[in-house]
Design a binder for these strands. Structure first.
Lengths: 318, 318
DNA sequence: CTGAAAGCGCTTACAG
DNA sequence: CTGAAAGCGCTTACAG
């Protein structure tokens, strides 16, 4: 390539990267012409070896087939692309071992940074990444310690919006469908709900796994026992969708028999039967914030708020 | 590292890679001990530069937030991991330009291969990849030419299963909800349906975009006109879910008013209201096949069949 | 079985 | 403004 242009590799580098040294216009033309003729494609691997930066970021996420994580992954990839970075992805499922495996492989590959979108098992991989000197940002859910940088939506605000809206429909008891335990973001949501209903014994706490199947089964069971609440806030879309399908199969009307609001608000919540009223997490903004944090090391921005998308499942006539 | 072990870099390489030259047991021990002590992490970038293989595969997909593509992406990543490869991912949306951009970036990064899971715009990037000597496998949808390696499920079989099942419920006219045009896999499904209903004029062809919103709107409109078919095969889960939500909002019972079968069968189709009967595409097998094809260059395996998951939307009492 | 050396394709001081 | 050279951290012939 340098030979074809009749110049040195240094000059080729200067024109390709538009710096850091100036190049005479005529020389630049010759290099560009040669590059076009040869279909020259700069080797990023060689560049990475020399410059110690790959332009690649590792994204570890729980499960891309869950639409919430899938949407987040898409936004992270696109934010990274806007910053001219490539995305290496890995699904950790709900296994800490697999998460460590992925982080290890990503460090081997010399990623410039790591974004971790973990489900409930966000165990801290700080030891590994600190040793490698690679920055990490968590999205949705950070490790317990508290020293990590994490971006998440404003869970407190979202829960209060949901509870207030259901009260506006005349409900006095507002139940909450939480996850199996009180860890992670759902734990925060659960705490916000506890505060909002302030110990009202008629506002019951329900629990099930984060899956449609689990929420579906729970709903069927409670319907069979006549123990279903009249107004419910579901911690996640997956669970809300399971409630919808369980209610349907028991011939129970939503929102007539049970009014429902979900706290994720992924795009698909708009097309369930009936359409879910939900607080919509600003996934794109969260992804952008995470990428910004990774490279600019800006101070932590305030948690973005999730606006309430009013649809049918709460009782509105929309 | 080599200095720490008191040996040459060549020997370090031999023990790390377990070859290609033998190493004395005592020397090996010394190297391993030094590696453990230093937390030695072989630099894959340097290795890639020297050996001209990165161990990275590029995955271009339409949209990870669509559960069908998201699930496929997860299976591809896991199949790649089993083959000890890393996955670089990019969402092309429905833009050919963005797809080319991603392929370009992936080639810059020197991926060992490319897996393309395109939506309807699977334009052929063969020119780029052939110039770079990088193998490509398409999943779900191949380019028009026909020379490319593509893995997809047996669309013909799935459609016939669906039509036969609806006939078993006593329906004589079986409508089909297709995409906006007859390209890609949906075109194949549409053709299979045409053959199955053999020109019965009562079996109408419907079309809309591949989104819940579009199918929802179409269903509402047809319900308003009293023009909804009594039995329908939807080309995709997204469309079937839109039909469900449109029917619900018009107070129309599924399966009583309209019996429905979908042709994707992603996991979430099991928890709609009502649960969707669907032909379940063997996504994991497809991903495994694609990865196998990429590296082993085995002859094209027969298209995997999609078994019918019988649930409620078809009229069964499940 | 082991070491010294070349070279993968870049970037970047250093001379000119 | 440009070229010759070193070096990023590996792998792999080539000698010994």
């Amino acid at each position: 390539m340098a030979r074809k242009a009749g110049t040195s590799t240094a000059v080729v580098s200067y024109v390709i990267n538009d710096g850091p040294r100036p190049v005479a216009a005529a020389t630049r033309e010759r290099v560009l012409a040669a590059a076009a003729e040869l279909g020259y494609r700069p080797n990023r691997i060689a560049r990475a070896l020399r410059s110690r930066t790959t332009g690649v970021v590792g994204l570890v996420l729980a499960d891309a087939s869950n639409p919430y994580f899938g949407a987040l992954a898409r936004h992270v990839e696109q934010a990274l692309d806007r910053h001219d970075r490539l995305t290496m992805i890995g699904n950790a499922g709900y296994s800490a071992a697999r998460q460590r495996h992925l982080v290890d492989r990503f460090l081997d590959a010399r990623v410039d940074g790591l974004i971790i979108v973990s489900a409930d098992g966000a165990d801290d991989v700080a030891a590994l990444t600190a040793a490698a000197g690679v920055p990490v940002v968590y999205v949705h859910h950070g490790p317990a310690g508290g020293r990590a940088r994490v971006v998440a939506a404003d869970n407190h605000h979202a829960v209060h919006e949901a509870v207030a809206h259901l009260r506006g429909h005349g409900h006095r008891h507002i139940a909450f469908l939480s996850g199996p335990d009180d860890g992670g973001p759902v734990g925060l949501r659960r705490a916000a709900w506890s505060a909002a209903v302030a110990g009202d014994p008629g506002s019951v706490l329900l629990r099930c796994d984060y899956s449609r199947a689990a929420a579906d089964a729970l709903t069927r069971r409670l319907a069979g026992e006549g123990a279903l609440p009249r107004a419910l806030v579901a911690a996640t879309d997956e669970q809300a969708i399971g409630v919808l399908s369980g209610a349907w199969s028991r011939g129970l009307d939503v929102p007539g028999g049970i009014a429902l609001i979900s706290l994720d608000g992924t795009p698909e919540s708009a097309h369930t039967a009936p359409a879910l009223t939900a607080t919509r997490q600003p996934l794109r903004a969260m992804a952008e914030q995470a990428v910004g944090l990774l490279f600019d090391d800006a101070s932590r921005a305030p948690a973005a708020r999730a606006p309430l998308a009013v649809r049918r499942s709460c009782g509105c006539q929309k």
